[in-house]
Simulated scan of single mutants.
Amino acid sequence: MIGSSPPLDDRPLPEQDGRGPSGGLRHRLAEVAREVWQRGREIELLHRAMAFAALCFVTVVPLLVVIAAASPTSGSGIADWMIDGLGLSGRSAAAVDELFASRREVVSTTTGLSLAALAVFGVSLMAAVQNAYERIWRVPPGAWHTVWRQVVGLGGLIGYVLVAEWSGVPWRHTGAQPTLRVAATLVGGVLFFWWLQRLLLGSRMPWRTLLPGAVATVLALVGLRVFSRLAFAPLIVSNAVSYGVIGTVLVVQSWLIGVGYCVYAGALTGHALHRAPTPRRRGLR
């Protein structure tokens, strides 16, 4: 009709359709969670986490046992790191500690050939992690001559675990010791996983893009520690009574699968955060 006003658009305004500041954040987190779930199925996250746990237990853990036994610190070696990662104490901590031989037995029975073999096979863990990072970030596989990156990555992993284990030794039973342990574990963990992604991916991904994945990995490991304290600690005690050492090994292996999940899911979260549009990038439609 001439002179009548045009029909009004009855669509809600941006601040009224749940896409305000809080609604936009929820929408973005939902997008990130959806992409992590889909990409996790695409790269077969469960199989990769199980392979990570198997390679850790067969190659890296024995190598860490030998290196920690030869170190001059007064800790209990790699057992301290596992006990802290699982959040154990009392009987459950003692059950895990019994899995490892004493320092004197480890050093006296280790040969140079066996140590070299463990180091060579330990590189396969870094190769698996590099392949997973390349699939997550959708970059072409690295050339064969970049195997030195895997060797350096293995050395960095061993160094991080030893520093995290050593952080429980100085100033024991003082107020400063927990601060040192938290700083070495959390801050050192963020720096390590940030550096590890950059090392294995090379210059194909910039530093700032990889930082959210490193933070997400450490946060996932913190959540795994809380879950382990609630679920794995009583399970270790009951399994140790029912099945002996084998029961404890199964729980430790399950925890290592969880660590593999955290490592890969953290990188997936970083990739999803990089791809998810922010409200400013999305704009008003």
Rank of each mutant, 00 (worst) to 15 (best):
Trp37Met: 09
Ser74Val: 08
Gly3Tyr: 04
Gly175Cys: 06
Trp148Gln: 02
Arg275Gly: 00
Pro212Gln: 02
Met205Glu: 13
Val226Lys: 04
Glu44His: 14
Ala93Tyr: 01
Arg198Gln: 09
Val259Gln: 12
His274Ser: 10
Gly159Ala: 15
Leu256Ser: 07
Ile67Lys: 09
Glu44Met: 11
Trp137Met: 09
Leu162Arg: 15
Phe57Arg: 14
Thr146Gln: 13
Val249His: 05
His271Met: 08
Thr174Glu: 12
Ser76Trp: 10
Asp84Leu: 10
Arg91Trp: 14
Ala183Glu: 06
Ser167Gly: 14
Leu113Trp: 10
Tyr264Gly: 09
Ala68Tyr: 12
Arg104Leu: 09
Phe121Leu: 15
Gly112Cys: 04
Ser108Asp: 14
Ala33Lys: 08
Pro62His: 12
Val66Gln: 08
Gly18Ala: 01
Gly202Met: 04
Leu64Met: 12
Trp255Gln: 08
Pro212Thr: 01
Gly175Asp: 13
Val245Trp: 04
Arg181Tyr: 05
Pro178His: 06
Gly18Leu: 00
Ala33Pro: 05
Leu154His: 13
Val32Thr: 13
Leu191Gln: 06
Leu284Glu: 06
Trp171Ala: 04
Trp144Asn: 09
Thr146Leu: 14
Pro206Glu: 02
Val249Glu: 09
Gly122Arg: 09
Arg91Asn: 12
Val169Ala: 15
Val190Trp: 01
Arg198Val: 02
His271Gly: 06
Glu165Gly: 01
Pro277Gly: 03
Ala240Trp: 00
Arg138Ala: 15
Pro72Gly: 13
Glu15Ser: 03
Leu115Glu: 06
Ala272Tyr: 03
Ile83Gly: 08
Ile246Phe: 03
Val123Gln: 10
Phe193Gln: 14
Val139Ser: 07
Arg204Pro: 00
Pro212Arg: 01
Ala49Thr: 03
Ser22His: 11
Ala267Glu: 10
Cys262Leu: 06
Glu98Leu: 08
Gly283Phe: 11
Val60His: 13
Met82Gln: 10
Trp137Leu: 09
Ala143Tyr: 03
Trp171Ile: 00
Ser4Gln: 12
Arg225Gly: 12
Gly156Asn: 15
Ala164Trp: 02
Val241Ala: 04
Glu105Lys: 10
Gly156Tyr: 15
Gly90Met: 15
Ser4Cys: 05
Ala143Gly: 11
Gly153Tyr: 14
Glu42Tyr: 09
Asp10Arg: 02
Ala276Met: 05
Gly122Pro: 06
Pro212Ile: 00
Pro6His: 01
Arg172Gly: 13
Val226Pro: 04
Ala143Cys: 03
Ala214Arg: 11
Leu210Ala: 00
Leu25Pro: 04
Phe121Val: 07
Val259Asn: 10
Phe52Gly: 14
Gly189Arg: 04
Leu86Thr: 10
Trp166Gly: 13
Ser5Cys: 05
Pro14Tyr: 00
Leu196Ala: 02
Asn131Met: 07
His145Arg: 14
Val106Asp: 09
Pro21Thr: 07
Ser102Thr: 12
Met50Ser: 07
Arg138Ser: 12
Ser102Cys: 06
Met50Asn: 08
Arg28Glu: 07
Ala272Thr: 01
Gly270Thr: 00
Gly258Ile: 01
Ala184Leu: 01
Arg48Ala: 11
Leu221Glu: 14
His271Arg: 13
Arg91Val: 08
Leu186His: 03
Phe232Val: 02
